[in-house]
Write a protein that binds this DNA or RNA. Structure first.
Length: 569
RNA sequence: CGGGACGUGGCGCAGUCUGGUAGCGUACUCGACUGGGGGUCGAGUGGUCGGAGGUUCAAAUCCUCUCGUCCCGACCA
């Protein structure tokens, strides 16, 4: 590819509305252009990168027996009504009507479609298991798209679905997927972790995320510095609390006046106690009404854990007015003792003695609260957020580390949720009809490319890992008008392509400085600089984008070694 | 959906408070020189100032409405 013939509109300055590095650099490098909030056009250079990711994904999906399909992006409403998600998905689902006023949506995901395909055409246990996947444009009308292509509304995703007769078979494919995903992100040259994850609204019992470590990431993950336990923070288990060994005498429950003291901080200061003596009461609104969650004063409650402990459909922090209206207690003085709310407690609460909590009455708290004696709770479980340095729940020597990351892949075991709702049944070897067991597995293609940038850049621009680079090498003639330089450049260009090295030849009339700046911005791993002086001595210069190191090789003899040199970069 | 900010050539910005012929940098075009790190000089192209309405002799500037985009929060396979 000659630089003058390919559209790579680079910019010296980033657009004002780009915030994260990958967004800025992708725009500056002429890979993408924004069309609307969360909607982007992909230009030639950007597309070359996406195709690289897609190809790696395809190879690994095929390797574990996945079959590629291509499903419609516009989907009929009926299927979504069948699964119940037409109602449930809400505003994030982009709904459309055709000229006959029939309802459709632009697919945010494809469980309904794939389940429909399989129920029509797969009827026997002999045809199972089967894994189908596609690489498709999806649309989710996010409340707030941001971070460029990392969290757009329209995006490219690989989604795979597997169908099975048994849970064991599903787990088998699930673990093959996990391995395939690990290979994919390894091949992309990314530093990532596979972490346990909450399965969210998609349902299902078992799920892992693949998270590329980057400070700009939206996800936070906790992992053990000693064993291999790793989890999304919203699920990261707290180590089981041990009973307090120091024997304290149980005090009687007692009201104390705490006028105007609402927050944990205010109360602890006022009563001169440490915050771990407090029992914090946080109220949530759920489909089962208002509920209260209890954690120690020095902890934060984890809503995802609470939701799972309650086993409710949805859960939101309750607005103050609602709490006051329902309980008659002003905010800040709520407590679990004698409340009519359903109460769920963190395990640590059970080991507290002489706790302090709101008295369900204005300007008053209770002291000397004993779990067994004074508190009635629906259920006890792990409800608190973990902190950096907390002991690992799985091993005895490890401590939690917390890092940020970008979720690039997510795998789920769905169970029979969709197959039951949509009657995707098969006949087993006894001739009995049963619902299929399903798994589903996604990878954000554009997000993976963006994550690669978040992890590989410097002040000059992108530094592509070789497998994702739009070109592996760029030839920079010092002056393309000089015949010797020009013909050497063209010879090298031809030779490299013949050797399978995707090479860009910067044939523009600009000065070398300009070409360097662009080559660096685009992040092409290897620069081949051809100058008249070196050429006179039968040499050309190779320069690594990543290290900035350069060396001379003899021309034309050593040009054939470029593929090896690339492999070592 | 709550809070905040911003819309002026492709990109980055000034001008708005205090109304009076739309500007700067960069990019782009042409010419000359230059040719190992965004080079120099000269000559050019390109903007209904997001849109609609209003006030005024006169609106990028003041008023009203509207659309768009971004940030923080809530939300999120």
């Amino acid at each position: 590819m000659y630089y003058s013939k390919i559209l790579i509109p680079t910019l010296k300055e980033s657009p004002a509305d780009a915030e994260v590095i990958s967004h800025k650099l992708m725009v500056r490098a002429g890979m993408i252009r924004q069309m609307a909030a969360g909607i982007y056009s992909t230009l030639p250079l950007g597309l070359r990168v996406l195709k690289k990711v897609e190809q790696i994904v395809r190879e690994e999906m095929n390797r574990i027996g996945g079959q590629e399909v291509f499903l419609p992006s516009v989907q009929p409403a009926e299927l979504w009504e069948e699964s119940g998600r037409w109602e449930f998905y809400g505003k994030e689902l982009l709904r459309l009507k055709d000229r006959h006023d029939r309802e459709f949506c632009y697919g945010p995901t494809h469980e309904e479609i794939i389940t429909d395909i399989v129920r029509r055409d797969v009827h026997s246990y002999r045809q199972l298991p089967i894994t189908l996947y596609q690489i498709q444009t999806k649309f989710r009308d996010e409340v707030r798209p941001r971070f460029g292509i990392m969290r757009g509304r329209e995006f490219t995703m690989k989604d795979a679905y597997s169908f099975h007769t048994t849970e064991e078979s599903t787990r088998e494919t699930y673990s093959q997927m996990a391995e395939a995903y690990s290979r994919i992100f390894e091949r992309c040259g990314l530093d990532f972790k596979m972490v346990e994850a909450d399965s969210g609204t998609i349902g299902g019992s078992f799920s892992h995320e693949f998270v590329v470590l980057a400070d700009s990431g939206e996800d936070r993950i906790g992992f053990c510095d000693s064993c291999d336990y790793a989890s999304n923070l919203e699920k990261a288990e707290a180590r089981a609390a041990k009973p307090n060994s120091e024997s304290t005498s149980e005090e009687d429950i007692k009201e104390v006046s705490t006028p105007g003291k609402k927050s944990v901080e205010e109360v602890t200061q006022f009563l001169n106690v440490s915050s771990d003596k407090l029992i914090k009461t946080i109220v949530f609104e759920t489909d089962q009404g208002l509920v209260a969650g209890l954690v120690r004063g020095d902890r934060e409650i984890n809503p995802v854990k609470l939701k799972n402990l309650i086993d409710c459909e949805w859960l939101n922090p309750a607005p103050e007015e609602l709490i006051t209206k329902e309980t008659g207690v002003p905010c800040g003085y709520l407590g679990p003792v004698g409340t009519q709310l359903k109460v769920f407690a963190d395990t640590e609460i059970t080991h507290m003695s002489n706790g302090i909590t709101g008295a369900n009455k204005a300007d008053t708290h209770l002291t000397g609260v004993q779990f067994g004696r004074d508190l009635k709770v629906e259920k006890v479980g792990d409800l608190r957020d973990i902190n950096e340095g907390d002991r690992c729940p799985k091993c005895d020597s490890g401590k939690y580390k917390i890092k940020r990351g970008i979720e690039v892949g997510h795998i789920f075991i769905l169970g029979a949720k969709y197959s039951e709702a949509m009657k995707a049944h098969y006949l087993d070897d006894q001739g009995k009809e049963k619902p299929m067991i399903m798994g589903c597995y996604g990878i954000g293609v554009g997000r993976t490319a963006a994550a690669a940038i978040e992890q590989n850049y410097d002040e000059k621009g992108i530094i592509w890992p070789l497998p994702l680079a739009p070109f592996q090498a760029v030839i920079l003639p010092v002056n393309f008008k000089v015949d010797a330089v020009r013909s050497a450049a063209e010879t090298i260009y031809k030779t490299l392509w013949e050797q399978g090295v995707e090479t860009l030849l910067d044939d523009r009339s600009d000065r070398l400085g300009v070409k360097f700046k662009d080559a660096e911005l685009l992040g092409i791993p290897l620069q081949i600089i051809i100058g008249p002086k070196n050429l006179d001595e039968g040499k050309v210069e190779l320069k690594s984008r990543k290290t900035g190191e350069s060396k001379l090789i003899s021309f034309p003899e050593e040009i054939s070694t470029v593929p090896e040199i690339l492999a070592e970069l």
